[in-house]
Write a protein that binds this DNA or RNA. Structure first.
Lengths: 188, 188
DNA sequence: TGAATCCTTTGACCTAAATCAAAAAATGAA
DNA sequence: TTCATTTTTTGATTTAGGTCAAAGGATTCA
């Protein structure tokens, strides 16, 4: 899956791909494990092979706000912390038993130096993440609660039914009571 | 200013910088000029030397929604359209008389091929844009109108007083009436 | 310099969604 | 299998901010 992801962006030879993959580690993570806490500098970039990851932060009143869901087939990171090596604003966790490929910042930098194509991939990855964030921003700003939930269903159909309701509600910027009522009216 | 921007990310020699700058053009643009319309594929990346740029889109009801303001010292683009060469979701315009450096996609690609450092710069640029978008997303989701305006004041103090109120209001996801009332209470 | 257009303010009223509270359902641990 | 904890649903009430309408100000351009 990771191989396909790379090949899709920039073509590699089989030898190159094998070498690139050797920089990654394979990990199995149990449900509800925290990968990064707020304030830590994130040293790893993750690729979700199976399962769901989530980033969130705590409001002053202690309530969690989901910032993003990472489904299978996507890279996951506390992007600003990892790329800019600054303290993370977010917590990162997995909300299901999850299979991850991971790479450290140091190894990624080595890879980027070794393969120019890798730098291209990271550039494209950053732009892709950027695009999807912008898309979310536009889907949430000025939209009603119902429209925001419709965006969620179309953008993350699988996650919409696997993540706890409260986590989805905060991702969409509404209370869980409101989301619960929306779901009821959905089925009618 | 553009030189400083580059040097700040990756060191170049004087000769290199001169060569890189020769790929850019210098343009003076009159207030309220549209640079890109929705649906067009954006072929240019802009650097704002002086003035203010703005991206916006139209809702189904025809109302403009400001997506971003670009102040002096920043790159401006319809990011997804320029980098991925897809039809732009946004309009791009300048809201003051503006001095811009511009570079076409073709020339930028040449530069990236010629100087690896350029690819690094674009990668870092993409990550920087990403980070600031994420920051906005977090500052708007779950915040009250007052808090959103405070974010605007701290993030874009200059633009807060130079852009028309309606444009700022839609950027912050509120009506202009609400923003007008906020400002009044501000002064009290 | 004045008509025309655009931008901002103000007021009255309304509504979507938040808050508060508590019951019901689901999950998990012993 | 039961008890405890967490998650979801439902109801009653409140409120922030939206909508509608109209009047003032400020720009612009002939």
């Amino acid at each position: 899956m990771l191989t396909a992801y790379f090949q899709n962006l920039v073509p590699f030879t089989d030898d190159e791909i094998a070498d690139v993959l050797s920089y990654f580690e394979h990990e199995t993570i149990k449900k509800n494990t925290t990968l990064i806490k707020e304030g830590q500098i994130s040293n790893k970039l993750y690729f979700v092979e199976k399962g769901i990851g989530r980033s969130y932060y705590l409001k002053k009143d202690g309530k969690e706000v989901t910032q993003w869901f990472f489904g299978a087939g996507n890279f996951m990171a506390s992007a600003d912390s990892f790329f800019q090596q600054t303290p993370s604003f977010y917590y990162l966790e997995v909300i299901e038993d999850t299979l991850l490929y991971t790479i450290t910042k140091e190894k990624l930098d080595l890879l980027i130096e070794k393969y120019r194509k890798m730098e291209t991939i990271i550039r494209l990855l950053a732009i892709e993440i950027l695009t999807s964030f912008v898309h979310k921003l536009n889907s949430i700003q000025f939209q009603t609660a119902r429209e925001r939930y419709d965006y969620m269903l179309s953008e993350f159909p699988d996650i919409s039914y696997r993540a706890p309701l409260g986590q989805i509600a905060s991702y969409l910027g509404m209370t869980q009571e409101t989301l619960s009522r929306l779901r009821r009216s959905e089925q009618a």
